[in-house]
């Protein structure tokens, strides 16, 4: 039988293949656009020469397959092409190729870092709280506390992100001005200032992802409570808290790790709306802005980054659940 290393290698290869196919899907989808960017940029009064010139400069005169591999090759080496929105088309009169174009990579890099910061702050708040709440709900199952948390998490899970965001703004920023409602972050801010402005979006995201993790923790622990070794521990006279934390929790870790990773992947989609509400300068907001002005290279790049992060986190969840399960680690 295959060793655990073999399985992991196989999963990694599968993840890479998926990413490759996804990049093809994104590229094909973008190329479904009617006409091309050269015409779109120049508008009604385009002369054929101008269109041809811009097409040559942007490399649009080559075949789609060549363009795809150029884009993919660039993306792998960190060059994501040039943003159309920041293009300075006066330079097209000259012979220099694309000199006036803003590079997508320089535009995305700082925003990507901001989004990662937001995601990390969220994870730092959400994971401990939901684990503690999940353990407590399992400990006091079917009590008033358990029911109240169940209703609360079910409600927060099913509310749209912007509703939670505006409720938090209303109570924590407008009625009781504790935190700033706008998260405008820029370079050169001190870390504490940065953190203060990230708290409100992070809290919103926490409310969204916490519910899943908490419910899963509770369910995973309760699933185990009927097993013989838990019975044994209880008969030995160990207290209920210790039974759950020392005996049940380590065995329930696999599904919990899985759901934590999946929820961090979910953060990636949730981040778009939350960033727009709080005007947080992250990659989600850049994505929405580029979608509105149809800045295709940026849309393409953001899509690829989102998909890559999503696949990577799912892959991590997969591998961690293999590693934490002895039956998968030592197959018969």
């Amino acid at each position: 039988m295959k060793s655990v290393g073999g399985i992991i290698l196989q999963r990694l290869a599968l993840g890479l293949l998926t990413l490759f196919v996804v990049s093809i899907v994104i590229f094909v989808a973008v190329n479904l656009l009617p006409g091309d960017f050269a015409e779109a940029i120049l508008g009604q009064g385009a002369t054929p020469e101008a269109v041809a010139s811009i097409r040559r400069d942007l490399g649009l005169d080559q075949s789609p397959i060549t363009r795809y591999f150029q884009w993919l090759g660039g993306a792998v080496t960190g060059d994501l092409g040039n943003s159309f929105a920041q293009a300075n088309f006066a330079s097209f009169a000259g012979t220099e190729t694309g000199s006036g174009l803003g590079s997508v990579a320089t535009q995305i890099a700082p925003r990507f870092a901001n989004t990662m910061f937001l995601a990390m702050v969220t994870a730092a708040i959400a994971v401990p709280i939901s684990l503690i709440l999940g353990v407590l709900a399992a400990l006091y199952r079917n009590s008033a506390f358990d029911r109240a948390t169940n209703i609360f998490t079910l409600s927060s899970i099913s509310s749209p992100e912007f509703f939670l965001a505006y409720i938090l703004i209303l109570f924590l920023a407008v009625l009781n001005p504790i935190l700033p409602s706008l998260s405008n972050i820029f370079d050169g801010m001190s870390f504490s200032e940065r953190l203060e402005r990230t708290v409100l979006p992070a809290l919103t995201l926490t409310l969204i992802v916490m519910a899943h993790m908490m419910r899963m923790t509770r369910a995973a622990i309760i699933n185990l409570l009927a097993s013989p070794y838990i019975e044994m521990a209880r008969l030995k006279g160990i207290g209920p808290m210790r039974v759950i934390v020392r005996h049940a929790l380590p065995n329930a870790l696999a599904p919990i790790i899985n759901v934590v990773a999946l929820n961090l992947a979910y953060l990636i989609t949730g981040v778009v709306v939350v960033e727009v509400v709080f005007v947080y300068p992250g990659i989600g907001q850049l994505f929405v802005d580029s979608v509105k002005i149809r800045d295709i290279p940026v849309v393409q790049a953001c899509c690829l980054i989102f998909a890559a992060a999503y696949i990577l986190l799912n892959l991590t969840a997969d591998i961690l659940s293999i590693l934490s399960n002895p039956r998968l680690r030592h197959p018969k």
Partner: peptide
């Protein structure tokens, strides 16, 4: 493959088109 792209992101991409 379609499920490997986050739903909202994919929807936004297709809505652009």
């Amino acid at each position: 493959v379609l499920m490997a792209i986050p739903a909202l992101i994919f929807a936004l991409l297709l809505m652009t088109i």
